[in-house]
Write a protein that binds this DNA or RNA. Structure first.
Length: 421
RNA sequence: GUGGGUGUAGCUCAGUCGGCAGAGCACCAGGUUGUGGCCCUGGGGGUCAUGGGUUCAAGUCCCAUCACUCACCCCA
């Protein structure tokens, strides 16, 4: 038998109801903050990601699903959403009506990594992006929106980590300084960090190895190198968060993996997901729009890892699925014929309905109704047909009442809607 | 890409020294002729991941492959 592809997975019920829940709350919550949904395609020209994420990042170097399209263009299954949203913002000149645009998008991303807990080759993100606003208030608002979103899902134990990565004015000096310092003590660094040193020395700051942590213990932090504008921006973000009682910690080791980030970088972490502790991450990318050929417009955004979020929600609420409101139990051919119509009418009237036409014993059908956690069972047999009254049984209270067959659909609908039965 | 762990019923797993393939849960039926949960009785269900090797005999030992899983790298 043909099995699914490594790193990909089927999301099955009842887990899918958690996904629906998580997504619906996100839509409602983000729209309250003025965000509107955008649905870019999952396939883009490879060049879009090479230019935005950065040629020398791991994503571009080894993790993208890239293949030849028609003509000479290479196509890529998107490894992240931001680049596509920026591309759409530029391509449709969305800035021309109002440069300030706020979008969210929900969908699958693809990265060819080795799968492990909380990491899949097809994974899902909820992204939010804001264009045309450079105010630190927007940074704070986004983080606030994220934290209150998680609160709405009753997720606890999350920590917001905050850092500033500076801008093209001040980052080079820091990078140089750090690079010089680390080059002088390469013998203390692990193999990976020596490699990072010339690719991206900032990454050495968040190496988990003990020896490397010691080596960078007295390293300068970006925050000390921030230029005046970046410093004021970062301070403003913090003071707004303080005023709104959003707890956060400054994490000078927080370095985002994508090249396009500037200034504010943040990550929401949890202890409960093994090695993959980031449940959301994001930051400013004030130069990306222009880099990709658009007008000079600042921007900021974040991505929520839905797969990881769903895991957290499931750990908190193991049982999520509701059984049917009414489960029809027809006994005999005549009953089945009538039930066949009623089940459709009731479902169409907005009642969760189920029926069993297997012809098995009443006991077997009652057991099935019980296992499905049906709230009510509607029994129809020869006796009921003779008396022109179906039996409606409340599975919890075990109460039973007769329901006249000629007004069955309306009567049952009203009773169930009023939760009388 | 690198390293560790695990592959036996739908699920969770036992299987001793190499000697008939097992349990619990789940499923089906009956006990109760038309009433679920608890209890009792019975039943169905297996390419022991795959391929090869050793052996009179392999779920068990050896080799290879594949899959899953955790971790590293990196990220959501």
């Amino acid at each position: 038998m043909i099995q699914l592809v490594r790193g990909f997975r089927d999301i099955l019920p009842p887990e899918t109801s958690v996904w629906q829940y998580v997504e619906s709350i996100a839509k409602e919550h983000f729209e309250n903050f003025g965000f509107r949904e955008m649905r870019p395609p999952v396939l883009e020209q490879a060049a879009l990601f090479q230019r935005s994420i950065g040629e020398h990042t791991d994503i571009v170097e080894k993790e993208m699903y890239t293949f030849a399209g028609s003509k000479d263009t290479m196509l890529t299954l998107r490894p992240e959403a931001t680049a596509s949203v920026v591309r759409a913002y530029i391509q449709h000149k969305l800035y021309s009506v109002d440069p300030i645009c706020k979008f969210y998008t929900i969908g699958p991303m693809f990265r060819k990594e080795r799968p492990q807990k909380g990491r899949y080759r097809q994974f899902h993100q909820i992204n939010a992006e804001v264009f045309g606003v450079d105010s630190p208030y927007m940074d704070a608002q986004l983080i606030f929106m994220l934290m209150t979103y998680f609160a709405r899902l009753s997720i606890t134990g999350l920590r917001a980590h905050l850092n500033s990565l500076g801008c093209p004015e001040c980052r080079p000096a820091f990078r140089q300084n750090l690079s010089d310092m680390l080059s002088a003590r390469t013998e203390k660094l692990c193999e990976d960090c020596v490699r990072r040193l010339d690719k991206n020395p900032l990454r050495v700051l968040d190496c988990k190895k003990e020896s490397c942590r010691e080596a960078v213990a007295d390293a300068p932090s970006m925050i000390d190198f921030l230029c005046g504008d970046c410093k004021r921006h970062f301070a403003a973000v913090q003071s707004v968060l303080d005023r709104m009682d959003v707890p956060f910690e400054i994490d000078t080791g927080l370095v985002r993996g994508l090249d396009y980030y500037t200034r504010t970088a943040f990550e929401i972490q949890t202890e409960e997901l093994g090695a993959q502790n980031a449940v959301a991450g994001g930051g400013r990318y004030d130069n990306l729009v222009e880099m990709l050929g658009g007008p000079s417009q600042p921007a900021i955004g974040f991505a929520v890892g839905v797969d990881r979020l769903v895991e957290l929600v499931e750990a908190k609420f193991p049982a999520f699925d509701a059984g049917p409101d009414v489960f029809f139990v027809p006994m005999g051919d005549a009953a089945m014929e009538m039930v066949a119509q009623w089940v459709c009418r009731l479902a169409d009237a907005g009642i969760r309905t189920e029926a069993d036409f297997s012809g098995r014993s009443l006991k077997a059908l009652m057991r099935r109704a019980d296992r499905m956690e049906a709230k009510n069972v509607l029994i129809v047999g020869d006796k009921e047909i003779a008396e022109n009254e179906a039996v409606l049984r409340n599975m919890k209270t075990r109460d039973q009442v007769g329901v006249p067959m000629d007004r069955l659909v309306d009567t049952v609908r009203e009773k169930v809607a009023r939760e009388e039965f």
